[in-house]
Amino acid sequence: MNALTIKALGFAALLIIATLAVVIQMDIDLTDSINAIAVGGAIAIATITAYVTTLYIGKMKTDTATGELVDENWDGIGERTNELPSGWAYTFLGTIIWLVWYWFIGYPVFGFSQIGQYNEEVLAHKARYEKKFAAASPSELKDMGKSLFFVQCAPCHGNTGDGLSGKAHDLTKRISKSEVLDVINNGSNKLGYPMGMMPPGMASGKDAEDIATYIAGGLKGEAPASSAACTSCHGADFKGNNGMAPNLVAYDNTLISHVLENGKKGIIGTMPSFKTMITPIQEKALTAYIQSIVE
């Protein structure tokens, strides 16, 4: 091997090591077959190119040009009648034989289907995780909810769940005064509680203000008398009357479940439904996580 080839292979190795170093830093599972094959491919690209190109460039130093010339000559350019380089010729022939084999035997026998493979991937995934975490502990649930939240919810609610200064609901608090007031004034009917819709105008003027302050304040102090208008549905403790209407003091399981199922439309904007994206266990995990970040 000449010095050039060694240098080139050194460069290839450096590139691959750098790649692996970065990838490992991101906690990538290199045993995942797709990841492993991709790394294999990368290694093949770097090393084969480095080796073969420098092999030929090396010949510029060591070999001399030989071979018969053809009769023609174009603008001073001659052409030799040398045979094909054998390594090239046999590899070409080999790939052609492989291609024919692949099409007439390999592919039909293997019978690959990408949707079939997807179905297997999903089943394997279920087998690996579903049972294991079917009865996840509360702390596991919370932990599980965290990455779900970052991937699915943070684009709207922000990484800390604070709603990005009013662009989505602030999940670190139960509910704000303006949200309560909006519901009192305009009603609400997207969440799909057994009670159906919340009618508009259950209170007004100063009464509404007082109720909103009281609820948004986390039920501190004396309940305003007018809030009786609410308790018939939301329960005397405002905890939702056993799931008949939303719990106004905490993110209970029922509330999160209804929000994820139906989405929510309110004064801030619209939250989409996640019913096609979130599995039951993921819903539990998200609930546990949200309950953990609320102040």
């Binding site: 684009p155 990005l164 662009k167 904007g269 619209t270 989409p272 996640f274 994206m277």
Partner: peptide, 21 residues
């Protein structure tokens, strides 16, 4: 369309880093 909504797009298209740091 399944997981983003009108108001989100409105904010986002105006200045994406405000919504997604």
């Amino acid at each position: 369309g399944n997981y983003r909504t009108t108001d989100w797009h409105e904010n986002h298209m105006k200045n994406p880093p405000d919504i997604v740091p």
